[in-house]
Design a protein around this nucleic acid. Sequence first.
RNA 1: CGGGGCGUGGCGCAGUCCGGCUAGCGCACCUGCUUUGGGAGCAGGGAGUCGAAAGUUCAAAUCUUUUCGCCCCGACCA
Length: 476
Amino acid sequence: MSKGITSQSQDYSKWYTEVVQKAELADYSPVKGCMVIRPYGYALWENIKLNLDNMFKDTGHENAYFPMLIPEEFLKKEAEHVEGFAPEVAVVTHAGGKKLENFYVLRPTSETIIWYMYKKWINSHRDLPILINQWANVIRWEMRTRLFLRTTEFLWQEGHTAHATAEEALIEAKTMINIYKILAEDYLAMPVYIGKKTENEKFPGAVDTYSIEALMGDKKALQSGTSHYLGQNFAKAFDVKFQNENNKQEFVYATSWGVSTRLIGAIIMTHGDDKGLILPPKIAPQQVVIIPIYRNDDDKNKVLNLSKKIETTLKEKKIRFKLDNRESVTPGYKFNEWEMKGVPVRVEIGPKDVDRNGVVTVRRDTGKKAFPSVEEFLEDITNLLDTIQFDMLDKQRKFRKENTFDIESYDELKEVVKKGGYARAFWAGNSEMEDKIKDETKATIRCELFEKTKESGKCFYTGKESKVQVIISKAY
RNA sequence: CGGGGCGUGGCGCAGUCCGGCUAGCGCACCUGCUUUGGGAGCAGGGAGUCGAAAGUUCAAAUCUUUUCGCCCCGACCA
């Protein structure tokens, strides 16, 4: 065990940092707060990206690219926006060997430059809607950083849409948060609560912010994706009007939405255990790892022959697999390494297996061993991966259920905060009360639930009858 | 920005309090042989301006001053 990692119960955040590095997802860069995403981590991001991008395209969105440098004054055009982002913006003051007349900021988000461009592109209602997404990097100068969860530079996608009506924009914002929910649950096996942010927690410049909230292994919440209904705020700031069907000038309605490489942090903390990562099959860079075991050349030939047969079929079935035929390390070493990296299924092929025309399979999520024949294995592998995907989500659903507590008083909230998890309650308080609760308990209202357990109830804080049900917890 | 920790072969550390002779240890790496079903063993080998600068001293990884950087915990945030 001396070669293992710090256990979750011992020090959760140390565990997290070690998993990220030992699974070779990312490493620290020489620049404070920045990280290098290593090939294995990037492969994970690519799989997330691919699936999400398909969903974007299926809902009529197109990709584009806007520049990273934004004129500094752009950020100042929307009052809340500048107030929200000013402290964390990096500014380019010098270039070409001299001080610049006008400074540029490195984008912390792209609303401003995009709306500057939208003004040029939008004249009539016939130009709407515009449904653009971009995959990009952004820079936010955070005080404290943490691999994947909060880094100075991070990768994300940001969708920016323009609409002729508020209704249409609202539908868009809700459609997109639902796509994030699908991504989280169907691909990342990570159940999320979906809802609306309170005034205190919403995006600077938004009318409404919707979010998906996931529960990490240490029972803290992680905001894992957001979608904003921006109303006409940015259109007004950038004077983007269109001529409607009645020949009247009207400001455009907008949305923006994004998820980032933070999702990788979410996956690690949702599924990981003391042996390392556990990756959902749908997005795992390798779904199967084959480990050949042999003592001599005879065994080696037998084993590799069988392995080749198996590889051919796996290829046909479009399963992402890797044959780990390194001879410099022992099988035991490989077991540990691939467990650290979270590969869903390990296949062992040794002389004993060849003799009975079988393989040994081990599930990463449950550790369960099985000894199918080669034919059974090849026939079942797709099902097995689906089962793992399903079981992982199911396990997390149970975990969330066990850690969601309906409460009716402030004292009960404090108890929930102490043990971790979500408190679910009705809420009729205001912004100041929310601040006070945050001060006193460190917990925040994560969101006002879209899917309530009942129509209305008494506010846990004010005692007033309310139709707003919220979840509250400590968050990353 | 407040609190804490740390800079010594590629990585992790010891040595620093109380200055001293060739700067050690583990892992990793290279070569060879034996191994291989849960992190292999033995033998041999390569690799270090001790974060940087200045000072004290016969002598500095160690003492003094300055400085740079990173990590962790808090307030802020995806």
